[in-house]
Design a protein around this nucleic acid. Sequence first.
RNA 1: GUGCCCAUAGCUCAAUCGGAUAGAGCAACAGCCUUCUAAGCUGUAGGUUAGUGGUUCGAUUCCACUUGGGCAUACCA
Length: 542
Amino acid sequence: MKNYLLQLFKAAESKLTYLTEVELVFTVPSQKGHGDYSTNAAMILAKKLKQKPHEVANEIISNLDYDKTIIEKIEIAGPGFINFYFTPTFNTQIIKTIFNEKQNFGRSTKYSGRKAMVEFVSANPTGPLTVGHGRNAVVGDTVANMLEWIGYTVDREYYFNNAGRQMRMLGDSVRLRYLELTGKKTDFPDDYYQGEYIREIAAKLKENHGDALLDENAEGKFKQAAESEIFADIIGTLERINIRMKNFYNEHILYEEGRIDLLIKEFEKKNLSYEHEGAIWLKLSELGNENDKVIVKSSGEPTYRLPDIAYHITKFERGYDLIIDLFGSDHNATYPDVLAGLRALGYDTDKVRVLIHQFVTIMEKGEVVKMSTRKANYITLDELIDEVGSDVVRYFFNMRSISSHLNFDLDVAKKQSDENPVFYLQYAHARISSILRMTKEEGLDSSLQQLDLLSTPAEQSLLKKLFEFPEDVIYSAENYETHRITIYLEELAAHFHRFYTECRIIGSEKNLAEARTALCMAVQTVLRNGLSILGVNAPEKM
RNA sequence: GUGCCCAUAGCUCAAUCGGAUAGAGCAACAGCCUUCUAAGCUGUAGGUUAGUGGUUCGAUUCCACUUGGGCAUACCA
């Protein structure tokens, strides 16, 4: 529908050159009496042309060469909106499109040939993924899915660092637990990793190596064992919610390849850094940021900024057209430094899109659960999946705008009641499966021969909703907003349930019944496609 | 102190780069199953969009200030 309108306006541009001066936006009006699609173009142009909106609208309409079998009427309404009404016959044609494209309906080639990388999760291997990481993981994977749907080739990447102070403490935490198991008295510091998983890793080491590791230091076998155990755990958790990374990028590679040293020299050569009190500083204040920041400590050790910049350079070198970073809001102060550094080196940072999601607040028994990985006071993502299942987890994290805090009420989630809309969608899908089983038994087929019979308001509004799917996928993907997909699907399901209540198939006249069967199949396809973008299953039965 | 995010119905949240009468779900109330899944449908009620100004044909949206909350503000990552 939207495409047809765009074509109409494009064709009119030769006569009305001012049409090129406005970005055409067609929206589905919230009010029923305002047409199927609406544009405010005349009102925006009125200001530029210094004419009345209604006059401009009239001129535009008289220059639109439209097909009367597609558009029923065009109206000017309110302060100058142009409202379009499509014909019922045209509305039914969407079923044919869906039958042709099936599981690809909603995909587009708009960004075909372009490569994107989505970097997400990127938690260092110091403990199991928590519910907080869950939001990042699910949103990141879903954004990647959406980009694939609009044509991108997408790589999912997990960046991690297995060096540094935190990892040393992790190794030493395991060492101390190991010593405890061998009967040694230890003094386990408060700020070490308190989690039960540390004891489990230590126990495994004890089992495999006996007392042979008594003299090992924290950095060796202990850290190694912790890292590989924890990583295996993280990968397993991600698998459970259908997330598979293309690549795990170890920060250490940047050092091995000499990229860090090279970068330090590069900044120096471009006169972007200076030495002060034994440390090397980046002149970020000259690059538009608040303050200069240290990139190499006086100890000679780089700060995280340097490898972060070097890492992003590899993303540019790997030829991505779109580079997405997904972080929690605790990182909101770090990325401007990285981007400024990259820009100063001549990289086109418009290709980088940093998405910041707000925190997840866990509520249990009406109270906020404060979480800390080190203190082992947290709910793991695994536990959450155990409680509510992968579908609920994926849906829940996808259903909110990332700029909003997510209130995760564990008691509600555990209830698995109809308070969770994922069941509403899955129910619609399962209901259609059931209908199709029944109609088959009745000897009814689906037929595209007499779609004109789909003329009731419930059928027509359901058809119009189907048209919106491809448009909504593009919009959601271009704005990286996973929650819009959930909104669309909830609306589609609501339209379907209404149709189901009002329009019967079995018992209706054969041609009508078969047209309605086709409509059901089309709706089911769209539900399934939408759910697959979210990574949620579409059950045949419930 | 400063920067980013947030504040919308009793609760959890939407509202398409400024659009028409601010919408859903849950909770509440009143109805709908001898026929395709009632995990559903229909209706009622619920709002000074935190507050005060400003910008314009038009503001939940943009700007300023105020209030309240989250996250940052390291030679931690």
